[in-house]
């Protein structure tokens, strides 16, 4: 019996009849944090969305804890990209976090005092205890990102799939997210993040999946992040970059001016 939080087998995704994800095969290890890294348009967000059934897959199989998503939905929390919603929407931070409880509350029943308390607790966990009643447009970008994380926390899931949580956030939020990921891991949870910043990958995450329409490499960060793998993932753009770095670091290399 499989206990892996997420297993994806030969997943193909097409968008407007153009393939965006080829034959993706991967598994996420429990109790660890995994980064999905790759250039723009590599299909990182697509991978998350397709595995959650938000966009149709052409073929392939996705299993969460050995089962199709439908059977274990409550064990999986999704944090969409912050830019994917309208932050002028007339709701408070607490209202947004309470959305993580809607499925548990059930159809036709209202959000009650005890759910609002649970929402407030989740907000306190991301350092936003004082902002519960704020309208979401009055929060900074980093605070908005933390509201999204609090919503996922309120779901009390085992696997967290986050789409670019570190994208353009302030230092305080970055620290809050890192602390949160560590805490989730300690509690036996698993975290998967789409990540952009190559400089911080090795520091922030245990495992790395390099993606550029196909899975280029996967495994522990220290093994995966080799110049060879990065070149395969990012192509010529990065090649130029690290050649430049090599040139500059060579003793006696010609310097400008």
């Amino acid at each position: 019996m499989s206990t892996l939080p997420l297993e994806i087998r030969s997943l193909n995704v097409a968008y407007h009849r153009k393939m965006v994800l080829w034959d993706a095969d991967l598994s996420i290890r429990p109790g660890r944090s995994t980064a999905i890294v790759g250039p723009n348009g590599a299909g990182k967000s697509t991978l998350l969305k397709a595995s959650l059934g938000l966009i149709p897959a052409a073929s392939g199989e996705v299993l969460f804890y050995g089962e199709p998503l439908k059977k274990v939905r409550s064990r999986v929390a999704y944090v969409p990209q912050r830019e994917s919603v309208d932050w002028d929407f007339p709701v408070s931070a607490r209202d947004v976090v309470a959305m993580g409880l809607y499925k548990k509350i059930g159809w036709c029943l209202p959000v009650r005092a005890r759910h609002r308390r649970m929402a407030d607790e989740a907000l306190a966990d991301v350092g936003l205890a004082d902002f519960a009643g704020r309208q979401i447009s009055q929060l900074s970008g980093g605070q908005q990102q933390r509201v999204f994380l609090a919503r996922a926390l309120a779901q009390k899931a085992d696997l967290h799939l986050m789409d670019e949580p570190f994208a353009s956030v302030d230092a305080a939020t970055e620290q809050a997210i890192l602390t949160l990921i560590e805490r989730l891991k300690l509690e036996g949870g698993t975290v998967v993040c789409v990540h952009h910043d190559l400089d911080t990958v090795a520091e922030y995450f245990d495992d790395v999946i390099l993606l550029n329409m196909r899975v280029v490499a996967k495994g522990p960060a220290s093994e995966v992040l080799t110049p060879e793998n990065l070149r395969k993932t990012y192509g010529a753009r990065l090649t130029l970059l690290d050649e430049a770095v090599v040139d500059l670091s060579r003793p006696g290399a010609p310097r400008e001016s």
Binding site: S74, S84, V91, D95, M99, Y102, K103, W107, C108, V111
Partner: peptide
């Protein structure tokens, strides 16, 4: 009756769908 569902489907339809609404 469908206040919660209408609200989340309007604010964040992807999240709603992923969480089973």
């Amino acid at each position: 009756v469908f206040f919660k569902e209408l609200q989340v489907a309007a604010f964040d339809p992807r999240f709603a769908k992923a969480s089973g609404i």
